[in-house]
Design a protein around this nucleic acid. Structure first.
Lengths: 217, 217
DNA sequence: ACCTGAACACCGTTCAAGT
DNA sequence: ACCTGAACACCGTTCAAGT
């Protein structure tokens, strides 16, 4: 027999499936991933995937988790109590960069840490870093959550991807303040970049105010 | 004939389709909406929908836009220059409440204002309010975007929906700082609520700092 | 103009059969 | 244990046919 139902060495592994799925998501977007298409890319037939994952959704969860795993968390290790602000800022940038590299998986990632190990490790590290820096536990939890809101929000609700490339859609009579400038892709990236930095600075400035109030009480 | 291909009075309208789709999304979630299921709920056959919308996606866009349309924008009309902070806070709460009422459509809404009239009206109103309050145009655009990030992020990356109801998934050996307390649904809503309020206050405090720096220059 | 059933090219998932 | 093809119950969308 030159073609068998089961090869001596497995053709598939969870890792191979996840990396092929990630590549497909990056190249063609979430909705391009079907079990048949993914299997074809791996040189097997559709149902084979079910020997390694229970559902297609769990494959996508694993892809999302692989992205979370690339977020730098070292800034929360052995923290200098006065430096929670820098740690938070560095982490936010690392997180945003990881998402920017794989924008199509963000909606899956945003569904919450859920069962994904790397996602939970992120939540855990931020909490640990904040409590070590002197934030009360309840506030540390909130800070982790609100930073997540802002970072994931900036990836998922990106201005750049939000506007359509069609001038007719933005009649100045309907939206007096919206200029044509919004339509330029270059300008849109600038808006996203500027809004992220402005928001991050405001968030950290505001938290610093709360931290001071906490210390001087 | 007691059953005809075309009735004298149209059976369908865009409004009827959108409200039935909205009800289906609210009751059973996004993935429960198929053209056949939606058509059945309206007492017609699947293809009929295509006489009123070009694609299923445009139906969902219209549902999302109907939610945006319920966001209060009156706080940006005839603004008191000193009160941009209150306007922003009130708007954020109104926006968040609208999303909380229809959580399943949030991923569609988060894709960006795109072509949706109500979504664009929101962006336009915030921009108008901020510039009228004395913010420079570039900053006004950024504020609209960053507030959107935070509000949509808080809806889409909700802690409450993020954790799974299974203790085994959160072994304290893996995540030393994550307590079992995170698992309680009641506690999760508290975290979301607290994180939103803490984040909003921090954001507005931080922006106030920037506004002052702007005035005193 | 607006609805219908039939049809097309897909889906995710199950399962018996193969080795 | 791990792969296969066949099958099931779905999809979104097109289209000719009806009134």
């Amino acid at each position: 027999m030159w073609r068998m139902a089961r090869p001596r060495k497995p053709l598939l592994s969870r890792d191979r499936i996840v990396s092929a799925a990630g590549a497909l998501v990056d190249a063609e977007g979430l909705e391009a991933v079907s079990t048949r298409r993914l299997a074809a890319a791996l040189g097997v037939s559709g149902p084979s995937l079910y020997n390694h994952f229970r559902t297609k959704d769990q494959i996508l969860e694993a892809v999302a988790d692989a992205v979370s795993a690339r977020v730098d968390l070292t800034m929360f290790e052995d923290p200098d109590p006065r430096d929670w602000r820098t740690a938070l800022a560095d982490w936010a940038h690392s997180y945003r960069d990881a998402l920017a590299d794989h924008p199509h998986i963000v909606p899956v990632l945003a569904r919450g840490p859920g069962r994904r190990p790397a996602g939970l490790r992120v939540a855990d590290a931020v909490y640990g870093g904040m409590t070590a820096a002197g934030w009360p536990p309840a506030q540390a939890t909130r800070i982790g959550a609100l930073m997540r809101y802002f970072i994931l929000g900036s990836a998922v609700a990106s201005f750049a991807r939000g506007f359509v490339d069609d001038e007719a859609a933005y009649d100045p009579a309907d939206y007096p303040h919206l200029g044509q400038a919004h339509l330029l892709a270059e300008r849109q990236r600038e808006v996203d970049e500027g809004a992220f930095e402005t928001g991050l600075t405001a968030l950290l400035d505001g938290l610093a105010l709360q931290y001071e109030a906490l210390r001087t009480r």
